[in-house]
């Protein structure tokens, strides 16, 4: 593990390894993991499967999936929205579980804590690793979604027909997909921050994964109970449906902005707890 990190730890300038190199090392380390690569490959299949399903069904279904038929550029947004429910958080949870709890389980965290890499830097590095997985996973879905939408579904002459019935050109449609991707990364970063905080408290990676997925399911259930509607503004999952708003014209920013602010609060909570725990933790 972390061969590159050990190298940085033994450089002559002890404790002053440049941040860029640390981050680059973490990025390579995270992306070289076979499980990450397998997961990204499977994620790439999801938009393709949706596209094939829509083409084979060949009739306007209900809801957002139905909006894809003959309107391929909707596919990346719908795929991201659908996968935000569980699959993308699964990827983020896995990365966060490996980042701290996984290292603890392997006994390698002790080395990192004792290494002359400041603990603050260690937290930044680990958070960056999780963020890299988040961004790459989202980009895979978005890019494969655009390609599958254009090639498999096609239609609408390379334009995007919005839910409001207007037509957007290719460039503007790409802008909307970009906004959706950015927003998705924000929501996933909130999941990742909380997952990292849990990861900092345990040395069993499964606990992190179970907490993330279990937490999302519990949040979903709580959000669906009418008597608990006062709880909804606190729940991260409440805003998960806002991604479809990029398909409206004029775009309504209310829910996207609100859910992004909520995600930032979760990032602050998770990041703060992770930092605090990692700095006070015994090696």
């Amino acid at each position: 593990m972390t061969a590159s990190l050990v190298e940085t730890g033994t450089t002559p300038h002890r404790g002053s390894a440049p941040m860029g190199r640390l981050l680059g090392a973490e990025m390579r380390w995270v992306l070289r993991r076979p499980r990450t690569l397998v997961m990204l490959g499977l994620f790439a299949l999801v938009p393709i499967l949706i596209a094939i399903g829509v083409v084979v069904a060949d009739r306007g279904g209900n809801g957002l999936i139905g909006a894809i038929a003959g309107n391929g550029l909707v596919l990346p947004v719908v795929a991201m929205t659908l996968m935000l429910a569980l699959l993308l958080p699964l990827a983020v949870g896995m990365a966060a579980a490996d980042a701290i709890a996984g290292e603890a389980a392997h006994g390698t965290l002790r080395g990192l804590l004792l290494a002359p890499v400041g603990r603050g830097r260690l937290v930044v590095m680990k958070a960056f690793g999780v963020l890299v997985v988040t961004v790459v996973a989202t980009l895979v879905v978005a890019v494969v979604g655009v390609v599958a939408g254009l090639v498999v579904v096609g239609g609408a002459d390379g334009t995007l027909v919005t839910l409001s019935g207007t037509t957007l050109g290719f460039g503007e449609a790409m802008g909307r997909v970009g906004i959706a991707a950015l927003w998705t990364v924000g929501q996933l970063a909130a999941v990742g921050a909380i997952a990292l905080a849990i990861s900092a408290f345990t040395e069993h990676p499964l606990v992190v994964l179970a907490s993330v997925l279990g937490g999302l399911i519990v949040f979903g259930v709580l959000g669906a109970i009418p008597a608990l509607d006062w709880l909804a503004p606190y729940l991260l999952t409440t805003g998960f449906s806002a991604g479809a708003d990029v398909l409206r014209d004029p775009m309504s920013w209310g829910d996207i902005g609100g859910s992004t602010l909520r995600a930032l609060c979760y990032i602050a909570i998770g990041g703060g707890i992770t930092t605090s725990r990692m700095l006070t933790r015994d090696a």
Partner: peptide, 8 residues
Amino acid sequence: GMGLAVAG
């Protein structure tokens, strides 16, 4: 860090 969490 705890302060940041509380602020969040």
